[in-house]
Structure formats: C-alpha cells, structure tokens
Design a protein around this nucleic acid. Sequence first.
DNA 1: AGAGCGATGGCCT
DNA 2: GGCCATCGCTCTA
Length: 216
Amino acid sequence: MNTNVLLSAQTLPREFYSRDTLRVARELLGKTLVHDTERGRIAGMIVETEAYTSNDPACHACSGITPRNAVMFGEPGHAYVYFTYGMYFCFNAVTAPQGTGEAVLVRAVEPLEGIDLMIENRGTEVETNLTSGPGKLCMAFGLKRDHNGLDLTAGSLTIMNGERPSEIAETTRIGIRVGADLPWRFYIPNNPHVSRKPAGKTRPSIRPVIHRGHSG
DNA sequence: AGAGCGATGGCCT
DNA sequence: GGCCATCGCTCTA
C-alpha cells in the first residue's frame, strides 16, 4: 500500500458498487458525496436515491448501449452524469457488474462542507434549497458534463463511508412516466433536504414504507 | 398546498 | 419531431 491509504481509507471500494442495484441504492443513504474543487471541498450526506436497473423501462440503458448511456455499461463505481431538460445535470453512481447498464440516481444530499460554495453555485442562501433535488445538487457541487465517467473510488469526486440511517423510506420514483409503479426510491425519513415530502405524483395513494433496523 | 407551465438543448427514432 | 430521472415561477385555494 502507498501513503494514500489513510486518505482513501474511507472511500467506498469498487465492490460496494458491483452489487445488486437496489441494495446499493439503499446503502448509499448516509454516505458522503465529496467533490474536491479548485476552490475547496464540497461535501454532503446522501439522503435520497433512486435505483435504475437494466430490465427497468425507466432506465436510460434499458434499450441497449448508446453514446449517452455508455458509462452505465462500464465498470461499476464510476459517475454517470447526464444533461437533461436543456439546462440541468443529474448525478448517478454506476452499479452492478461491468456489462450491465444499471445505476443509482442521487436525488438529494444534506450539505456538510463548502456550503458557501454551494450558495454561490446555486444563487440562493436557503439551506434546504441548495441540494434538495438531482439538478440542484449537481449545480451546488459544480457537477457537469466533464464529470461523466469519473472513477468514484479515486480522484476528486468520491463517495465516503458514513453512518447508516436507522430508518429508510421507500416510495415510487419521481418524474418518470414508465416504470412509475416500482417502489425504487429511497430516502431518510424526516430529513429536510429530501426533494419531496411523500411519494411521486403518479400515485398519491402509495404511502412511504418505512423500514426500521434493517440489516446488510 | 397543489396544479400548470415555460425555459432550453441533447438524444434517439 | 417528440421526449425527457428538473426547476422555479404563477395562479388558484
């Protein structure tokens, strides 16, 4: 081992990502997303995720590999950052073994470090509005096209270990038309930085399912 | 609190 | 040409 052992000791290893995507989506809650920029470190605790699997009609990769989604089929533990609605970016962690097109969308984080930089990047000082959505958090963290494909296990954009939440809420995903009935959105209950209070708009009847004291 | 909508551009058929 | 894994504003209640 080299002298970076101490610095990288808390970074999630590739094996973390190379597993079942739903499991990774749940276990990313409580972990810390870290972006080391020229102006300083920006970090936040992941509080909301969504899983996208290869047989899932809402997944960008469900119809096969294209230039846009190619990163999803590559090595797990890399960043899949895509451009959407003409002005926003969304950040994903590529999951499952290489060759499968799967990823976890990080929808919200709780600001921990570099909040002044987030305020500059977002143009607001309201703390619960800095990173409470996939587009917002990319703006706050300065994530854009250049970050697509970066290795999350080494370099300036990483995910570090963190405390496991005691509860996980599970609902349908937000902002999709197909696959809208799959309960593959996960978030930390009562955290003020989650993008929306209850479930997606599609099925207001679906209540969040709270899992207590989960293992694994 | 919730519904509606425009902005804006890349990707894919 | 149609469709977005969004956001912030406006209007109605």
